[in-house]
Design a protein around this nucleic acid. Structure first.
Lengths: 205, 205
DNA sequence: GTCTATAAATCGATAGAC
DNA sequence: GTCTATCGATTTATAGAC
């Protein structure tokens, strides 16, 4: 049993290494330009060995998305209960922007149908997505009740707007411009985003 | 000369048809999933004939981007001079959102290097991009002087934020949700965008 | 499970006849 | 310039030895 557990841990570590490589390559060149050969070379194993762990290229990408969603869920859980709902939302969004600026946010083309099918067929992915959405949804409604977010804005719009920061091209443009450091970029984007969600006819404090 | 002009017009019409097909396919499935065979089939000519008009797949995509930029420049030019700068900015952004919602906004993966090279090598593309940027830049500074846009926000940030609406995933998500019609979606996204660019410590009128 | 080698399919691009 | 036919390279995925 200890032996089995050990072997399982070895496998787990290897799969973690695979998912890390996929995560990095997805963030760097996207799904279509990422090749399975590259992933294998990056991990340092043969391509055929990769396919013993994951059934397809789509499954590799799905695993990377599950992991980043899991980490998002962890960040959500880690928010201090005493914090105001709007500040929890900002903290999670800030984390996502930082990950993206660090070049570690995997992104998938929403048009690829085989990829969509794989994601929609993954219970782990859907469960995590729903879990994160529900948590953020609670904070959004609370923020609207507090007046920190425009109560007339559909919560759906707020949720999507926050999610979309994970693949916002603006931070990348600003970083490429080279005029601002990462923290300034995050502050600027976070500011315009949440400022836009505020009520329009109310001066901010 | 009349003969030559006529033949040139026929070519022009054919190339317009090609660019239209590329535009549609880029909007629908993106650069990587678009195949040159599809473009040829869509236009109704052989693939080899396509390559008599455009040297490569990248050149096809570049032509589509030049055309959408040209149309953007046309929309910019068409703004009534009497209109307030902020309303001109909103009108152009609204147009871009409408095009995107109609599934006619071509998008390119920013990671693809061969594509980047093609774009950066296209004088028509760079000239149009600079022209549109400069026009919008004037309106942005004017809006900041008017107080319609936060004067403390770098104009660069405002410009990128407006440009990014052309590939904002939020409208597509909202449309997929099916709860709002196109006009409502555009109003919601436009509202949160420009509301976010407003000064934070000033009640809107 | 890991490897080498290769199958199978796709796709960008071109040759050559008309 | 348009066509048919095909090349050449890439890439996903697998077979089979160890």
């Amino acid at each position: 049993m200890a032996r089995g557990s050990f072997r399982e841990q070895v496998l787990k570590v290897r799969e973690d290494a695979i998912v890390s490589a996929v995560n990095r390559l997805l963030a760097e060149k996207g799904f279509d330009l990422m090749t399975v050969d590259e992933v294998a070379a990056d991990v340092g194993i043969a391509k055929a060995s990769l396919y013993k762990h994951f059934a397809s290229k789509e499954a590799l990408a799905a695993a990377a998305m599950v992991r980043v969603l899991q980490r998002t869920a962890d960040v959500v859980e880690a928010q201090p209960p005493a914090l105001a709902a709007i500040d929890k939302l900002k903290a999670v969004t800030r984390w996502a922007l930082e990950v993206q600026l660090a070049g570690e946010m995997p992104t998938l083309p929403s048009q690829n149908s085989s990829l969509r099918a794989e994601l929609l067929g993954s219970k782990a992915y859907l469960d995590l997505l729903m879990h994160v959405s529900e948590q953020l949804g609670v904070w959004i409604e609370r923020s609207q009740a507090d007046g920190a977010i425009d109560p007339e804005l559909p919560a759906e719009v707020v949720l999507y707007t926050i999610f979309a920061r994970a693949c916002d091209p603006v931070p990348g443009f600003l970083k490429a411009g080279g005029r601002y450091d990462d923290k300034t970029i995050v502050d600027l984007v976070l500011g315009t985003c949440f400022n836009g969600l505020q009520s329009r006819n109310r001066p901010a404090v």
